[in-house]
Design a protein around this nucleic acid. Structure first.
Lengths: 212, 212
DNA sequence: CGAAGGTTTGACCAACCTCAATGCTGGTGG
DNA sequence: CCACCAGCATTGAGGTTGGTCAAACCTTCG
């Protein structure tokens, strides 16, 4: 459904074409940056999964995107962060100074072109997300997320990197609805759930049909 | 709530810095481009309002964004359109060859920087939209749209350029819910609705409070 | 004046949410 | 090694929001 946001395949050389960069590890759940922070760096995800999203005052949370190994994240239009990024499980990132990258882009048109392409792909992913949240049922949303995760690895069986709460906050649902929908799929034979964090797609056709 | 997506204030010179461009008018409801078309041009909206969005096979529609005078639209990552653009009322646009613009961006770093900034602003608008659709109630969504439209002109009283159906398809609601929500606001004294296409915000505070 | 298209309103319904209880799993310490 | 605990996940019952279907109500336009 959604194509991954990356310059190159994940196994290729670093996505962000800047040499001077430090590598940092974050523990599960740790905050990488928060809404309101100065946006002085951009990130390339070496290993693990990152969620970016926003929090309303009353505690409602919306996850904008999950980012996977090989993808870049943390781009902002202004000086301040509008979203929060957190590690989903253990995470390794390369950190690049935003200034260094924009200087490089100013000198090297090819870098600028890639950066442009990167953000426009992010925009298209966000538009897919809008369609999902605006016009799809709970079943369709959950099926969409499972297919998104499957396409990432190319395998029909895969580990879920995130909790039910993360899935719910990405899909605009509650944790209970996600859970009920998954057991529904299970009972219909569309998926297997050998453990709570491992999924196998048994009937990909049917899941795809749910996404139109 | 959402800052307009534009290079310059609407009254300034053309947003897209390319001279060779034709100007075209579209009648109300007319299609400017459609999902699946080749994406050979980008557009600058001279006058009127444009909606961009997607259609599911079963007829469900989701509007991604409304574009207003001074804004640019029609950027794509790939060769083909993923969204459809239609005139909301009478519309005048400048059309620029995508190729001409990318050539210019390759030569002129400042142009490239502006294009980048333009798309990243679009991404942030889309993320606001995601938050709206994922975690806000019907009241909050309608209030958000009214404030968005008010901020565009800077006036508390303004014409609604779009139909109830367009509002519903942007907000992920039905036309009936939009209508009921507006009459709710009316009865609470939050807005006046002298005609079906004209709104006055009487209690901006209260509407903003609904948006957190 | 009549027709057409958009809008509003009403009654009813379904999907999803809320709240609460129960179940599972993985880690820790006796 | 096992018992216990904490934290997620699942399940259930019942409530709410927003959707559906249908009718009435403008406006605008011929």
């Amino acid at each position: 459904m959604l194509s991954p946001l990356r310059f190159e395949p994940a196994y290729a050389q670093p996505a962000l074409p800047v040499a001077a960069a430090s590598v940092i590890r974050y523990a599960a759940g740790e905050e990488i940056f928060a809404e309101g922070d100065r946006a002085d760096h951009v990130y390339e995800l070496v290993e693990g999964t990152v969620r970016t999203g926003r929090l309303l005052r009353d505690g409602r949370r919306q996850i904008d995107a999950f980012h996977f190994a090989g993808e870049a994240f943390g781009f902002e239009a202004g000086d301040l962060r509008r979203t929060t990024a957190e590690a989903v499980g253990e995470v390794t990132v390369r950190i690049v100074r935003r200034r260094a990258l924009s200087d490089l882009a100013a000198r090297d048109g090819e870098v600028a072109r890639k950066l442009y392409h990167l953000t426009i792909s992010g925009l298209q992913r966000s538009q897919d997300h809008v369609l999902m949240l605006g016009r799809r049922s709970a079943c369709e949303r959950v099926a969409g997320l499972l297919l998104l995760l499957a396409d990432r690895t190319g395998e029909a069986a895969f580990d879920l990197p995130m909790s039910r709460q993360d899935m719910a906050d990405y899909l605009g649902l509650t944790i209970e609805t996600v859970s009920r929908t998954l057991t529904g799929f299970l009972q219909e034979g569309l998926i297997a759930l050998p453990t709570v964090r491992h999924v196998e797609l048994l009937d990909r056709e049917a899941l795809e049909a749910l996404c139109e």
